[in-house]
Every structure is written in structure tokens, then in C-alpha cells.
Amino acid sequence: MGESVQVATFHVGSEEYGVDISQIQEIIRMVGITHVPRTPDFMEGVINLRGQLIPIVDLRTRFGMARIEPTKATRIIVTDVGTKRVGIIVDSASEVVRIPIESIEEPPEMIAGVGSDYLQGVGKVGERLIILLDLTTVVSAPLSARA
């Protein structure tokens, strides 16, 4: 066996995404979010996580998909991006999988409307395709104008 990465997977729309588990702090249920005015659409607001203010990004809006009402399955994945802690809203969180490095491919130009800027690659696990996200570009604002 060669090297592999461990990713936590989750769903947004019809796609399955993955983020390196070393970047994940915790996964929490949906909570009340304080909206911060005059911020980009995908910036949902901030939450109070045990006394810490965490900014929350809505992945659906970030990927240009329609906003939906949160369901019981909706989760906030609290991640550490560089030195910043950011929460991302996903439709549902699934599991942690191990993906061998050799089965990760370069991202195709466009996947389900998501600009390839956000993507690090696509991992294959059996029949599943897991889109590996580059969180740094996901949470940095200027990209929002492109699509």
C-alpha cells in the first residue's frame, strides 16, 4: 500500500466532498447564526462556539447553488484554515474515509457548477467520487465574483 489521506466526507447538493481530517476541528449541529450585514452572500454570519466567535460560510451559496432551509441533517463543519477557524455549512456529514494518493486525480475543469479553483482533486473510493476541497480558496472572499 502506498500513501493515503484521511478525509471527512459530506454532501452539498448531489455531490460528495471531502476535507483532510487534520483541518477539521469538530462537526456540530446547525445553530442560530448571527448575520453580519454588508458581507458577501455566502458569508452566513458568526456563531458563538463556547465563547469563541466563528465565521460561518454557506457552501451551497459559495458554489452558486440555491439556498435551502436547514434540515435535521444539516451540519456545521468547524475547520482550521491556516490560522483561521471557519465553519462551513453542509447538507449532511457522512464519514471518514482513507483515499490512496494514487487514486486522486487532477480536478476536471468544471464539476457540477463548482469552479475548479475550489478543488484540490477528485478521489475515487470504489464507485464513489469524492471531491477534495481547497478550503483556503473556499473561505477567501474575492473568488465569489467568478464562477
Binding site: 453580519v36 458581507t39 458577501p40 458569508m43 466567535l53 483561521k84 477557524r85 477567501s140
Partner: peptide, 16 residues
Amino acid sequence: LSDVVGTVAGISGATI
């Protein structure tokens, strides 16, 4: 406010 949120004219921070 985290710099992920960016600067918002008229808001200097938040409090819990």
C-alpha cells in the same frame, strides 16, 4: 470579527 468575514463599514467587532 474574523478577517474571513472581512471589514464591514460601521461594525467594529462583536461581543458575546
